[in-house]
Amino acid sequence: MDDKKRSTLTPAELGAVAHLYRGEVYRSTIWRTRLDTTTNWAVVTLGVALSISFASPDASPLPLVLVGVLIILFLMLEARRYRYFNVWRARARWLETHFYAPMLYDGDLHLEEDWQKVLADDYMKPTYHVSIMTAIGRRIRRNYLWILVIQSLAFAGKLTVHPTAATSFDEAAQRADIGPIPGEAVMIVGLIYLVTWAGIAYWSWNEDIERGKKRGASKAESMG
């Protein structure tokens, strides 16, 4: 059958597409739950580090530094999961905007726009719809920027108030010493650490804006 001549779907095909939509919604829901799981891990881990470092005035601020490694690990895992989630979410949203919305609005599926071919190609040749850097940036914007800011503020607060209120920057820097590594170096690395992730978040925000403009300006819309 020549797809270009198709103007409608049979009742059996409509039923199959409806079941397909239900499946995509289910898969996107499952992967959305997995995203929440890794975020919870990051929050709980940071909470443990805060409890240890602020347990007493003489407690070391080192746990607040080491927890950064785990937070970044969870961020990488979550970005990977987000790329999977985005595939299922994009397919479900594609069906909503091109199948259900036109059918409810005017009873016409507009198969002449070839939206069904875009979906079919995505099933035939599945691929991620966003890059790993875009996924990382989106997760930072959604959750992890706040986690990273709290971690950084807690570290700065620990250096400032424990064991007594710091009276100078040199005193606070001395408290940040990690073995042979001077506190000033630790602070500089921490600042770079925070600014780098914030920069990735800002870059992905601009990237999403440009993606939205291209999608709105082009009739040959793509998924993602």
Score class of each variant (00 low, 15 high):
residue 99 F to W: 10
residue 47 G to N: 07
residue 64 L to E: 01
residue 186 V to D: 01
residue 4 K to L: 12
residue 110 H to G: 04
residue 134 T to S: 14
residue 169 F to Q: 11
residue 151 Q to I: 00
residue 216 G to F: 10
residue 192 I to Y: 07
residue 161 V to P: 01
residue 130 V to E: 15
residue 106 D to T: 02
residue 184 E to H: 13
residue 46 L to G: 02
residue 135 A to I: 04
residue 85 F to K: 01
residue 206 N to K: 12
residue 9 L to F: 15
residue 89 R to Q: 14
residue 208 D to Y: 05
residue 123 Y to Q: 09
residue 104 L to T: 04
residue 183 G to W: 02
residue 19 H to G: 09
residue 32 R to C: 04
residue 72 I to V: 07
residue 133 M to T: 15
residue 158 K to S: 05
residue 81 R to S: 04
residue 203 W to V: 00
residue 71 I to C: 01
residue 135 A to L: 03
residue 135 A to R: 02
residue 208 D to R: 02
residue 153 L to H: 04
residue 25 V to N: 10
residue 215 R to C: 03
residue 78 E to N: 08
residue 17 V to E: 15
residue 185 A to I: 13
residue 220 A to G: 09
residue 77 L to M: 04
residue 122 D to G: 06
residue 19 H to V: 11
residue 131 S to N: 12
residue 18 A to H: 12
residue 111 L to V: 03
residue 6 R to M: 13
residue 71 I to T: 00
residue 24 E to M: 15
residue 156 A to W: 06
residue 59 A to S: 09
residue 16 A to W: 08
residue 214 K to V: 09
residue 20 L to G: 03
residue 126 P to Q: 10
residue 129 H to E: 14
residue 187 M to L: 15
residue 4 K to R: 13
residue 135 A to C: 05
residue 200 I to S: 00
residue 28 S to M: 14
residue 206 N to Q: 11
residue 84 Y to L: 07
residue 179 G to L: 14
residue 194 L to I: 06
residue 183 G to T: 00
residue 30 I to W: 11
residue 202 Y to G: 02
residue 209 I to C: 06
residue 123 Y to H: 15
residue 107 G to S: 05
residue 206 N to I: 08
residue 117 K to S: 11
residue 25 V to A: 11
residue 138 R to N: 11
residue 167 T to R: 08
residue 177 D to G: 03
residue 112 E to D: 09
residue 17 V to M: 15
residue 120 A to Q: 14
residue 96 E to F: 06
residue 70 L to R: 02
residue 47 G to P: 05
residue 175 R to V: 08
residue 197 W to Y: 13
residue 213 K to G: 03
residue 219 K to N: 15
residue 100 Y to V: 08
residue 174 Q to T: 08
residue 189 V to Q: 03
residue 20 L to R: 01
residue 23 G to C: 02
residue 167 T to K: 09
residue 7 S to C: 09
residue 126 P to R: 09
residue 8 T to V: 10
residue 221 E to D: 10
residue 54 F to C: 07
residue 44 V to P: 03
residue 208 D to T: 05
residue 107 G to R: 02
